[in-house]
Design a protein around this nucleic acid. Structure first.
Lengths: 229, 229
DNA sequence: GTAAAAAAATGATTTACGTCAGCTTTGAAA
DNA sequence: TTTCAAAGCTGACGTAAATCATTTTTTTAC
């Protein structure tokens, strides 16, 4: 499935681009973008960047998913976001002038384009539509994270898991959710054992079904009710 | 103390401006800003804006502090940030094109300037230094919130309280921390009773002293160690 | 296809923290 | 200065969820 896409993808014809911040690009912009990007294959569990390193450019997901996470004291991951094709990863640190505070690692085999810092910043500087898109994106994410914080503070693990499954169902759209139990626990913010026990309860309640690692959502509305959304 | 500042403040001479996103403004910019702002007095516990309302402009804090919060299911507040003089509040929603996802309420008597949306956006559009400052600010806050989420997920209430007190000590600089126990609990993400019990433990350990509502930090390094920072 | 390693699952136990209920202190307004 | 509601504090108690230990299943790599 990745076989076919494990090659150079042109921005002009990239299906993922249309959903991205570059979606509004005219032909000239797209072709310019295409000349300034490189196209790379990443295998599963391969880091795009790690905490503390200096940003050299941005990553544009063409195929596959990427987890964005920080590490707590004992190195335990807290997954902040899971990025899907069309998303641009790593652009926040372009503007802060600081090293990465988060890390990004592939969750599956991925096809990812890279645009170096100078080229990207130049595009942002000269393209008001892109710039506004980025500011809108930054603002929306800020609001999302406020909700995330509130959920962590006030909801039970059961409610947060239900909420996470609903979010993941959108991210994985037609596919089934395919994360290790540990990654899922690190997204929900709980212990792996607790997560597994709750998944079983959700199965008993016919909200989900599991196929080995994969999770199938049977009753999305039921999960939303449980999550209090 | 507020008496003297409860009047029109000029941007050209505003002490708080120098620490703000408008800090780099030249004389012409400052005077332009001054003409486009209104200066308002807010009493304690007065909302600047509430969740779900539509943004009409931004608020520039000249004196006093403001809490930024969301509400969970039963209306319980989760404080995301406490803004101090020099900070500009409410500018994120300017770019997202959505209603406020958070609310802002004064924590004390405040002197706050208001710049309406069109004027502010015009400044952002025409002033690259301001714009870059805003993008930097948005990015940094995004990183801060990732840390916040991780703390909520992985740290104990005791650790989070220690961390919060260290943060608040910076925000309140020379003054003592002066928040209701409930607000402090809503910042740490815990129950008021639990917060009070932990404050007592911190007192017993000579990390803090309380003077009625006010909290004095005795051993900041000790708190940082406890917080794991 | 098989072996080894990694991940998932289950059980037993502990505890940090939330909730409820009642009492005391504080500070704003009359 | 007095009053009274709001805020602060304390104790008793229950439970959600973490931790640790072990077994079973799945995945990976040869």
């Amino acid at each position: 499935m990745l076989e076919k896409s494990h090659r150079h993808v042109s921005c002009e014809t990239c299906g993922a681009r249309k959903d991205s911040l570059f979606g509004s690009f005219c032909e000239a912009d797209s072709s310019n973008l295409n000349e300034h990007k490189t196209c790379n294959y990443f295998k599963k569990n391969q880091p795009l960047f790690i905490e503390g390193s200096n940003p050299r450019g941005v990553f544009c997901l063409n195929e596959g998913k990427v987890k964005i996470f920080t590490r707590g004291e004992e190195g335990k991951e807290q997954i902040i976001h899971i990025a899907k094709p069309g998303e641009i990863v790593g652009f926040r640190a372009m503007f802060s002038g600081e090293a990465y505070k988060v890390a990004a690692t592939t969750l599956e085999e991925c096809n990812i384009c890279f645009i170096n810092k100078a080229d990207f910043l130049n595009m942002v500087d000269t393209n008001p539509v892109l710039r506004n898109g980025i500011m809108r994106e930054l603002s929306k994410e800020l609001a999302d994270r406020a909700t995330f914080i509130t959920n962590m503070a006030q909801k039970s693990v059961r409610e947060r898991l239900a909420f996470a499954l609903v979010l993941l169902d959108d991210i994985y759209s037609q596919e089934m959710i395919n994360l290790t139990r540990e990654d899922l626990a690190n997204f929900v913010g709980t212990a792996t054992e607790t997560l597994i026990r709750l998944l079983k309860e959700f199965k008993d309640d016919h909200l989900i079904e599991t196929h080995a690692r994969k999770i199938e959502i049977l009753d999305k509305q039921g999960l939303m009710n449980l999550a209090g959304v």
